[in-house]
Simulated assay, not measured.
Amino acid sequence: MTHPEAVFPANRHALYEQHGYSAAIRTGDLLFVSGQVGSREDGSPEPDFADQVRRAFANLEATLAAAGCSLDDLVDVTTFHTDPENQFGTIMEVKNEIFPAAPYPNWTAVGVTWLAGFDFEIKVIARVPARG
Protein backbone atom coordinates (compact mmCIF):
# COMPACT_ATOMS: atom_id res chain seq x y z
CA MET A 1 0.00 0.00 0.00
CA THR A 2 1.30 3.44 -0.92
CA HIS A 3 1.44 5.97 1.89
CA PRO A 4 0.76 9.62 1.10
CA GLU A 5 3.90 11.77 1.01
CA ALA A 6 3.94 15.54 1.59
CA VAL A 7 5.68 17.58 -1.12
CA PHE A 8 6.98 21.14 -0.71
CA PRO A 9 8.73 23.40 -3.22
CA ALA A 10 12.35 24.31 -2.59
CA ASN A 11 11.41 27.89 -1.68
CA ARG A 12 8.66 26.84 0.72
CA HIS A 13 6.73 30.00 1.55
CA ALA A 14 5.21 31.11 4.83
CA LEU A 15 1.59 30.23 4.03
CA TYR A 16 2.21 26.49 4.50
CA GLU A 17 3.57 27.01 8.00
CA GLN A 18 1.12 29.73 8.92
CA HIS A 19 -1.97 27.70 7.94
CA GLY A 20 -0.68 24.16 8.55
CA TYR A 21 -1.06 22.45 5.19
CA SER A 22 1.11 20.72 2.60
CA ALA A 23 1.79 22.17 -0.83
CA ALA A 24 0.95 18.79 -2.33
CA ILE A 25 0.40 15.17 -1.45
CA ARG A 26 1.81 12.40 -3.62
CA THR A 27 0.13 9.02 -3.45
CA GLY A 28 1.20 6.41 -5.96
CA ASP A 29 1.54 8.09 -9.33
CA LEU A 30 -0.85 10.94 -8.52
CA LEU A 31 -0.01 14.36 -7.12
CA PHE A 32 -2.77 16.40 -5.49
CA VAL A 33 -1.64 20.03 -5.32
CA SER A 34 -3.22 22.38 -2.78
CA GLY A 35 -4.57 25.64 -4.09
CA GLN A 36 -1.68 27.86 -5.16
CA VAL A 37 -2.08 31.60 -4.89
CA GLY A 38 -0.01 34.54 -6.08
CA SER A 39 1.87 34.87 -2.81
CA ARG A 40 5.33 36.19 -2.31
CA GLU A 41 7.83 34.17 -0.27
CA ASP A 42 6.57 35.80 2.95
CA GLY A 43 3.00 34.75 2.15
CA SER A 44 1.70 38.21 1.23
CA PRO A 45 -0.37 38.70 -1.94
CA GLU A 46 1.18 40.08 -5.11
CA PRO A 47 -0.75 43.39 -5.47
CA ASP A 48 -1.03 43.58 -9.30
CA PHE A 49 -3.71 41.10 -10.46
CA ALA A 50 -1.91 39.88 -13.63
CA ASP A 51 1.31 39.43 -11.64
CA GLN A 52 -0.65 37.64 -8.92
CA VAL A 53 -1.93 35.14 -11.51
CA ARG A 54 1.58 34.69 -12.96
CA ARG A 55 3.01 34.17 -9.48
CA ALA A 56 0.29 31.59 -8.70
CA PHE A 57 1.40 29.66 -11.78
CA ALA A 58 5.06 30.04 -10.77
CA ASN A 59 4.23 28.70 -7.29
CA LEU A 60 2.35 25.84 -8.94
CA GLU A 61 5.30 25.03 -11.21
CA ALA A 62 7.68 25.02 -8.21
CA THR A 63 5.41 22.59 -6.36
CA LEU A 64 5.08 20.36 -9.42
CA ALA A 65 8.87 20.38 -9.90
CA ALA A 66 9.41 19.30 -6.28
CA ALA A 67 7.50 16.13 -7.15
CA GLY A 68 9.26 15.59 -10.49
CA CYS A 69 6.31 16.92 -12.51
CA SER A 70 5.65 19.78 -14.90
CA LEU A 71 2.63 21.50 -16.39
CA ASP A 72 2.63 18.77 -19.04
CA ASP A 73 1.61 16.25 -16.35
CA LEU A 74 -1.63 18.01 -15.37
CA VAL A 75 -4.71 15.82 -15.28
CA ASP A 76 -7.23 18.23 -13.76
CA VAL A 77 -7.20 22.01 -13.20
CA THR A 78 -9.57 24.04 -11.02
CA THR A 79 -9.26 27.80 -10.60
CA PHE A 80 -11.04 30.09 -8.20
CA HIS A 81 -11.77 33.75 -9.00
CA THR A 82 -13.11 36.54 -6.79
CA ASP A 83 -14.50 38.59 -9.71
CA PRO A 84 -14.63 36.30 -12.75
CA GLU A 85 -16.48 38.69 -15.04
CA ASN A 86 -13.89 41.47 -14.66
CA GLN A 87 -10.85 39.19 -14.28
CA PHE A 88 -11.52 36.83 -17.18
CA GLY A 89 -9.59 38.79 -19.82
CA THR A 90 -6.46 39.02 -17.69
CA ILE A 91 -6.67 35.37 -16.67
CA MET A 92 -6.99 34.32 -20.32
CA GLU A 93 -3.93 36.42 -21.26
CA VAL A 94 -1.83 34.69 -18.61
CA LYS A 95 -3.34 31.27 -19.41
CA ASN A 96 -2.38 31.74 -23.07
CA GLU A 97 1.20 32.60 -22.05
CA ILE A 98 1.44 29.40 -20.03
CA PHE A 99 -0.51 27.12 -22.39
CA PRO A 100 0.15 28.68 -25.83
CA ALA A 101 -1.02 25.72 -27.93
CA ALA A 102 -3.27 22.69 -27.85
CA PRO A 103 -3.70 20.28 -26.30
CA TYR A 104 -4.93 22.41 -23.41
CA PRO A 105 -5.60 20.97 -19.97
CA ASN A 106 -9.16 20.42 -18.85
CA TRP A 107 -10.21 23.33 -16.69
CA THR A 108 -12.99 24.23 -14.27
CA ALA A 109 -13.31 27.87 -13.16
CA VAL A 110 -15.28 28.75 -10.03
CA GLY A 111 -16.37 32.19 -8.85
CA VAL A 112 -15.91 32.70 -5.10
CA THR A 113 -16.33 35.56 -2.66
CA TRP A 114 -13.21 35.05 -0.54
CA LEU A 115 -9.65 33.78 -1.03
CA ALA A 116 -7.95 35.03 2.15
CA GLY A 117 -6.77 38.29 0.58
CA PHE A 118 -6.01 36.82 -2.85
CA ASP A 119 -8.02 37.12 -6.08
CA PHE A 120 -6.93 33.95 -7.90
CA GLU A 121 -6.16 30.39 -6.82
CA ILE A 122 -5.27 27.30 -8.83
CA LYS A 123 -5.34 23.69 -7.69
CA VAL A 124 -4.47 20.69 -9.80
CA ILE A 125 -4.11 16.95 -9.95
CA ALA A 126 -1.08 15.70 -11.86
CA ARG A 127 0.25 12.32 -12.86
CA VAL A 128 3.78 11.77 -11.57
CA PRO A 129 5.97 10.53 -14.45
CA ALA A 130 7.55 7.11 -14.05
CA ARG A 131 11.05 7.32 -12.66
CA GLY A 132 13.58 5.47 -14.69
Score class of each variant (00 low, 15 high):
74 L>V: 03
129 P>V: 01
82 T>G: 02
123 K>M: 12
79 T>S: 11
86 N>D: 12
39 S>G: 14
51 D>L: 15
83 D>E: 13
107 W>Y: 14
26 R>W: 02
69 C>A: 06
52 Q>R: 04
71 L>G: 02
84 P>G: 07
126 A>H: 06
18 Q>V: 10
17 E>M: 03
90 T>C: 10
5 E>M: 14
120 F>N: 00
119 D>M: 06
27 T>K: 11
39 S>T: 07
55 R>E: 05
43 G>F: 04
83 D>F: 09
109 A>I: 07
51 D>M: 11
112 V>M: 06
15 L>G: 06
34 S>A: 15
91 I>C: 07
127 R>Y: 05
62 A>N: 11
122 I>Q: 00
93 E>W: 01
27 T>P: 00
132 G>D: 15
125 I>T: 15
100 P>D: 10
59 N>L: 05
75 V>P: 02
31 L>K: 04
2 T>F: 13
41 E>L: 14
97 E>G: 07
50 A>W: 02
58 A>D: 08
18 Q>F: 04
71 L>W: 03
124 V>M: 04
95 K>A: 12
84 P>E: 07
13 H>A: 10
4 P>K: 11
3 H>E: 14
77 V>A: 00
62 A>F: 00
12 R>E: 13
19 H>K: 14
2 T>V: 13
130 A>Q: 15
32 F>D: 09
56 A>I: 02
17 E>F: 08
40 R>C: 07
42 D>K: 05
78 T>G: 03
102 A>P: 15
28 G>K: 05
122 I>H: 00
3 H>Y: 14
84 P>T: 10
40 R>Q: 14
30 L>D: 11
45 P>M: 04
39 S>N: 12
104 Y>S: 12
43 G>C: 08
86 N>R: 15
113 T>F: 00
72 D>I: 02
61 E>S: 09
83 D>P: 06
85 E>Y: 11
80 F>D: 01
62 A>H: 06
19 H>V: 07
44 S>R: 03
